[in-house]
Amino acid sequence: MTPSDATGRGGLTLADYGLDERWRAHLAVAAMDTGETLAPARVTCVHRSAIDVVTAAADALADTPVTARTIALGRPGHRDDEAWPPVVGDWLAVDTTGRVHTVLARRTYLARPSAGRDSHEQPVAANVDVLVIVEPFVPEVSAGRVERLTALAHSAGTSVWLVLTKADLVDSEQAERAAGELGALVDAVHVVSSHSHQGLAGLADALAEAGTAVLLGRSGAGKSTLTNTLLGTDLATGPVRQGDAKGRHTTTSRGLVAGRGCLVIDTPGVRALASTTDADAVDETFADVVSVAARCRFTDCRHQDEPGCAVRQAVGEGSLDAARVERYLRMSAESSRLRQRTDARAWRDQERRLSRENKVGRRTTMRLKGRRN
């Protein structure tokens, strides 16, 4: 398993890609376990049977320029690697031949449930510091999508920002109202326009301090355009449809790019987003509703027609938004269904694995008996 097509990355270093002393410590531990010389590498893109990484020699200085490599995917040198296969953002320990020894322990892991019936999680990225929700003003901002992505960030343990794009297409009053209403859900909100450059300087400064950021949002939200503007990259972009202002998938795979002090993972547009299976993350996202629900007469109140429901009372008084409560109830119910389905699938997979192991054990026993006879 040898790397191919090594090329330079414009003078960028592993420090520009997020290497710090903690990652070097993890690498040193991996090297001690094997007695080999291991170099750090970060995954920038994942293909069907290979990964793109940036790497440098094990003893390289902090300001040594990185080299880009493509490594064929096989089994890692460390056979019990539970994190295999790697995802975008992973840090790897790579030996002198270019073989991946192991995936270094992840600080964060971001995955989103499939919107289909199989409920399989789809890996998004690893070692992310902030999830940036990119939501355009045109077509109108979707509070439901912001809430679902916020819950995803809470589940992964990352900070969450909201970037409202295409601010040049709406008046300032509308922009301020949307930022005020949705800003309470997230850690920070930025109103920007790649066309007029409104708000970009402040966002760039914030990203430079944030570490690794992953951009998530609908197709046509302006994620790739935003990345190009902020980092000086040339990711493919495309126009939106004139009829409904919706975009097409121009980004087809997740990619980690660095530039101008920022480190960003661009992702394909999300058309359908299932709820996270993490009930605590959902409750954290709807903390205002959960706080009121704690005052309901019954602990298992469904907030529908039960007597003494504090949530329905708050909706009637206008202190809770009815649409937001409805989204909370729908998202909580979906989270519960997905969690049950995921648990059931895990149980079936375990039963199949034990059945296969049992068959192998019986065959081995019969073979040994035959030899003794």
Rank of each mutant, 00 (worst) to 15 (best):
S4P: 01
G11F: 05
H26R: 14
M32N: 15
G35F: 12
A57Q: 07
A58Y: 04
A58V: 04
D59G: 06
L61D: 13
T67A: 13
R69L: 15
R69E: 12
I71P: 00
R75N: 09
R79T: 11
D80Y: 10
V88N: 02
L92R: 02
V94F: 05
R107N: 09
T108G: 02
L110V: 07
D118K: 07
E121G: 05
E147Q: 05
A153I: 01
H154T: 00
G157L: 03
T165C: 06
A167E: 06
V170I: 08
G180H: 09
D187M: 08
A188C: 07
H190V: 05
S193Q: 00
S194W: 00
H197E: 14
L200C: 02
T212A: 05
G217S: 07
K223W: 05
T225D: 06
P239A: 04
K246R: 14
R248Y: 00
H249A: 10
T251Q: 06
S253H: 12
S275G: 04
T277A: 14
A287R: 13
D288E: 10
A293W: 04
C296D: 08
R297D: 08
V311P: 01
Q313W: 10
A323K: 11
R327A: 13
S335I: 04
Q340G: 12
R352Y: 13
